[in-house]
């Protein structure tokens, strides 16, 4: 007799499974979870903490907040950040002062761990929310974060 109850229970379980998929089939129009990516670029908004790439914000006077302390370079596990710095004479005080020449960021080596941004004492570098990081040549992935001719904001060092 268990032969027939096996068949009955088996068929019943199969139909239960088919009901689940069938339910989604009927509501296919509103149920679709597909994001049609390149088409929804306008509406696609990343979360504000999203780790896209490291950038250095500049204000309207082309000034950034990086003092060249190299905390980020030390904190980075992969050597993604290189800071080329120099000592220049401050015109006001006449003392020699450390300033960055180039803040080089290798996006190709970055693992988006966020240690550099945690380490930065002056909040000079932040996460950008861009998500399209592919380029045709890997040399484009080596970026200089400070803009040419930029200087340090006054009062950051204090």
């Amino acid at each position: 007799m268990s032969y027939f109850s096996d068949i009955y229970n088996g068929v019943k379980s199969l139909i239960t499974g088919m009901k689940v998929t069938g339910g989604y089939f009927i509501h296919a129009r509103k149920g679709a979870i597909t994001q049609q990516y390149p088409d929804n670029r306008e509406t696609l908004k990343m979360f504000d903490r999203f780790r896209g790439e490291v950038v250095m914000p500049h204000d309207e006077n082309n000034q950034h907040r990086c003092t060249g302390c190299q905390s980020c370079e030390i904190a980075c596990p992969n050597g993604s950040i290189e800071i080329i710095w120099d000592r220049a004479i401050d015109p006001e005080t006449g003392k020699k002062k450390k300033k960055i020449d180039k803040h080089i960021y290798h996006l190709s080596m970055c693992t988006m761990c966020g240690l550099c941004i945690e380490a930065c004492p002056t909040d000079a570098i932040v996460w950008a929310q861009n998500y399209e990081n592919s380029v045709y040549d890997r040399s484009y992935l080596t970026k200089t974060l400070n803009q040419p001719g930029s200087t340090v904001q006054a009062g950051v060092e204090d």
Binding site: T21, Y24, F25, A28, G31, A32, T34
Partner: peptide, 12 residues
């Protein structure tokens, strides 16, 4: 049909 069963859109 597979897409509709699987909450997708299928080729479009």
């Amino acid at each position: 049909v597979a897409a509709w069963f699987q909450l997708r859109l299928g080729p479009n």
